[in-house]
Structure formats: structure tokens, C-alpha cells
């Protein structure tokens, strides 16, 4: 019971480690970015879960509601999502330029090419 009530946080930990592992273990630059995205998303879930008050309603002012969820983490995460999108787009733009310059998006290939010249 106790374990299940922390379900969100277990999901966060699993996603975080998955993302982190992909970033470290994969040589493909696009996959690295995907891993980075999963890693960031897990933190978004962490924040949003923390904002939920059990039994609380959506934070919209109304007369017949007394208990609200905390809206602040959601707002913070909206900002963080924007930051995440910006990071992903800069990263993908870099991958396109890398592909144009090296003809590959595999880190090992790229390093090999650099060593040759």
C-alpha cells in the first residue's frame, strides 16, 4: 500500500534513470537527445506530483470548493517545459549541422573521423 501510494515518485525514479542511461550509453546523438528529454520529463512529473493535494480540486476559484491543489509547481513546470523545448531544438539544430559536416550522427564515427585528420 505504502509503495503504491508513491507510484508517481517510483515512475519518476525509473524514468530518470532510463533517460540518464540512454544519454550515457548511446553513441547516436539523436538518441542522446531523446534520453535527455526523458530525463527532463521525469523531473517535470516530480514537480507536478508535488503540487497535487489529495482531495483538492483544480486551482480555479469557486465558492463550493474549499481545498485546492497547489498551482505553483504547474506554473514553474510550464517554464521548465519551454526551457526543455528550447534545449531540444538547439540540440537538434546542432545534430543537423553535425550531420552536414561529418555525414554521420554516431559519436564513435565522428570521433574516428576527427582522429584521422
Amino acid at each position: 500500500m505504502d509503495v503504491l501510494s508513491y507510484f508517481n515518485y517510483w515512475a519518476v525514479v525509473v524514468l530518470m534513470m532510463l533517460g540518464f542511461f540512454i544519454v550515457i550509453a548511446r553513441a547516436n546523438l539523436v538518441k542522446k537527445l531523446i534520453g535527455l528529454n526523458i530525463f527532463q520529463t521525469s523531473v517535470f512529473i516530480l514537480y507536478i506530483s508535488a503540487g497535487k493535494v489529495i482531495g483538492g480540486s483544480a486551482p480555479i476559484l469557486s465558492d463550493d470548493v474549499t481545498l485546492y491543489s497547489n498551482p505553483l509547481p504547474h506554473v514553474l513546470i510550464l517554464t521548465a517545459i519551454v526551457v526543455g523545448i528550447a534545449t531540444t531544438s538547439v540540440g537538434l539544430a546542432l545534430v543537423i549541422r553535425i550531420h552536414a559536416a561529418y555525414g554521420s550522427v554516431n559519436q564513435n564515427d565522428i570521433l574516428k573521423q576527427d582522429q584521422q585528420c
Binding site: 540518464f20 544519454v23 546523438l29 542522446k32 535527455l36 530525463f39 527532463q40 526551457v83 534545449t87 538547439v90 540540440g91 546542432l94 545534430v95 549541422r97 553535425i98 559536416a101 561529418y102 559519436q107 565522428i110 570521433l111 576527427d114
Partner: peptide
């Protein structure tokens, strides 16, 4: 062109840090 890969590596580590 090595600047591109350097920037990408920086992006990955910088984002993890942030």
C-alpha cells in the same frame, strides 16, 4: 567542425547539470 561536437557535448552535460 569539431566546435559542433564540442557544443553538443556541452549541451548534454549542461542540461544534465541544470
Amino acid at each position: 567542425r569539431r566546435a559542433l561536437l564540442a557544443a553538443f557535448n556541452y549541451l548534454v552535460m549542461g542540461t544534465i547539470g541544470a
